[in-house]
């Protein structure tokens, strides 16, 4: 069968690792010694009782859904703007799509430089404009770090939503808008009654898939703040990394991965129930 190679690769690189991690979660295992001891549900029980686990979970939710919320507002707004016909629209699109092509690590590093508390350009800029008097520690202030992280994360990924929504917007027949104008609809009515119903599907899909994605984001957080200040931005993926590679506690890391997996499963169930993606290829 022609799906053989793909299936073999997926088993080796995705399914086997997931099973490995789940198996680990039922063992007491350290990266420093090769022996594993079966402990059943013990790792899970101690996770459920651990305050730091739930804090990390909460931060993941805030980061994930805060990011997607902001990205939706910005992404859809920009898409509506770029769907208009005006001179220079091609240039504007090219400029706005640019951030999406910048590697995530680069985004994290550029913002780390720009948001630096002592020599970051954002502070210089805001002070030149007279908006603030003293430099702000955007990334090392515990009240601001998470918000800064959500904003810089959205700078790149809002564009993804713009691209999706723009493609959808361009497929809406112009007649719909003409008919709406004939019937005296203003711009707001047109958005509510013509545009929104057409992009609703994309928005829901994005909200769910991207939400899960952002919930699980590791790279941008790790490079920008390393989970700090303190633990303010330590989400679940950061927690897994620290548990496995800094504390060498593989069993617990496996259990955290297991809970992530359950979360993913829930996401998948909603996704399959709400969008029946299998129908699309079931023909």
């Amino acid at each position: 069968m022609t799906i053989g190679p793909a299936l073999a690769l997926m088993i080796l690189a995705a399914f086997l690792p997931v099973i490995w991690a789940l198996n680990l979660s039922f063992h007491e295992a350290s990266a420093l010694s090769p022996s594993w001891t079966w402990v059943g549900m013990e790792n899970y029980v101690s996770l459920m009782e651990s305050q730091s686990y739930w804090n990390a979970f909460k931060r993941s939710l805030i980061f994930g859904f805060g990011s997607v919320g902001l990205q939706l507002v910005v992404g859809v707004g920009v898409a509506l703007m770029l769907s208009r016909e005006f001179r220079g629209v091609i240039l504007a699109r090219a400029m706005i799509f640019l951030p999406y092509l910048i590697p995530t690590v680069v985004v994290a590093l550029v913002f780390r430089l720009m948001l630096n508390g002592s020599y970051g350009i954002l502070n210089v800029f805001l002070m030149d404009l007279g908006l603030i008097n003293t430099p702000v520690n955007w990334l090392s202030n515990s009240d601001l770090a998470m918000i800064s992280l959500i904003v810089l994360n959205s700078w790149k990924f809002a564009i993804f939503i713009t691209i999706m929504v723009l493609a959808k917007l361009q497929s809406i027949p112009q007649q719909y808008y003409e008919a709406a104008t004939m019937n005296g609809a203003g711009p707001l009515r047109k958005f509510r009654d013509v545009t929104f119903p057409q992009i609703k599907g994309v928005i829901l899909l994005v909200l769910l898939l991207r939400g899960i994605w952002m919930f699980n984001k590791f790279d941008i957080i790790w490079v920008t703040t390393g989970g700090g200040p303190g633990d303010e931005t330590a989400t679940l993926p950061v927690y897994i990394y620290e548990t496995a590679f800094l504390n060498f506690n593989l069993g617990t890391a496996g259990a955290i991965a297991g809970t992530l997996f359950v979360f993913l499963g829930f996401g998948a169930i909603i996704y399959f129930a709400g969008f029946s993606p299998a129908e699309e290829v079931g023909r």
Partner: peptide
């Protein structure tokens, strides 16, 4: 589609 959701950290650690 389910495996499309797997985050890198979940795979990389095992």
């Amino acid at each position: 589609l389910f495996s499309y959701m797997f985050p890198p950290i979940l795979l990389a650690f095992p």
